[in-house]
């Protein structure tokens, strides 16, 4: 456990030091000087980090909820029903994950242009759904695979209506899988770069867009500071998943 903690904490520590570092030259273990330049810039209005953060959060939450809404019936059908063309459907569902991202994104940009969906938040949400839905579906399908539909029949016999069956029988049974699927969808949307660049047209500014710019230019301190901000929701989501896994498997985390 300690080793595992160290493994995650070391890069984090490195980022924290880098974000304050000035004159950090090999083979010195610590920087020669420290400065808050990077954090001052990140906090300034002209950096636009707060609004990018907000845009990223809104997009990721909307994408997550839509992805789950789409994935739920699909996952149930894939896990619990046998039907003609199921293998083809599974393949089609996985296609966006398999296809080379650049080619797929260029193609989607063309399609989105035709329907006037580019340069807008709606377009970005839709394009993020493309990689998010397959992952969410696959994860939910594995939850549904262990689900015994007879418990639903039982509840129905006992007089529960559709809503009550969902709320008290189905949802509790798939809850851990649902939590993990939602977290994954959130993180996939959160880290989208290429799709946001193309469909958002530079009008929809998310955190990865700003981060990649500084990473490419080699401004290590600002990159480190932005990386830390970028990591924050990931850590929150990780704790969220840990909670679900704990409930599912009774592990102490």
């Amino acid at each position: 456990m300690i080793a595992l903690g160290g493994l995650t904490a070391t890069p984090l520590l490195f980022l924290i030091v880098s974000s304050f570092a000035r004159q950090w030259f090999f083979p010195a273990i610590a920087p020669r000087e420290f400065s808050s330049r990077a954090w001052e810039y990140v906090a300034s209005d002209s950096a636009g980090i707060l609004s990018a953060l907000w845009t990223s959060v809104v997009i990721a939450l909307v994408v997550t909820s839509l992805a789950i809404l789409i994935a739920l019936p699909a996952a149930r059908a894939l896990a619990l029903h046998e039907f003609k063309g199921k293998r083809v459907m599974t393949f089609l569902l996985l296609l966006p994950v398999i296809a080379p991202p650049l080619a797929a994104t260029m193609g989607m940009h063309n399609l989105f242009l035709r329907y006037g969906l580019t340069d807008s938040l709606t377009g970005v949400v839709l394009v993020h759904l493309v990689p998010c839905v397959p992952y969410a579906t696959l994860m939910l399908a594995s939850s549904f695979a262990n689900f015994d539909t007879d418990t639903e029949a039982q509840a129905r016999t006992l007089g529960a209506n559709f809503f009550n069956i969902w709320r008290y029988v189905t949802l509790p049974a798939i809850a851990p899988g649902l939590g993990v699927a939602a977290s994954f969808a959130f993180l996939i949307s959160w880290s989208q770069y290429l799709t946001t660049v193309f469909i958002g047209g530079g009008q929809v500014l998310t955190l990865p867009l700003i981060l990649v710019g500084f990473q490419r230019s080699g401004d290590e301190a600002v990159t480190a500071a932005l990386s830390l901000i970028f990591l924050l929701p990931t850590l929150i989501v990780f704790l969220f998943i840990a909670r679900f896994i704990k409930h599912d498997y009774q592990i102490d985390l």
Binding site: A155, L158, G159, A160, Y168, L171, P172, A173, A175, P176
Partner: peptide, 15 residues
């Protein structure tokens, strides 16, 4: 009856 079922299930309570 349905309510009894949920109380037996800790996951449901959490969710």
């Amino acid at each position: 009856m349905t309510i009894k079922l949920t109380f037996n299930n800790p996951d449901a309570h959490f969710v």
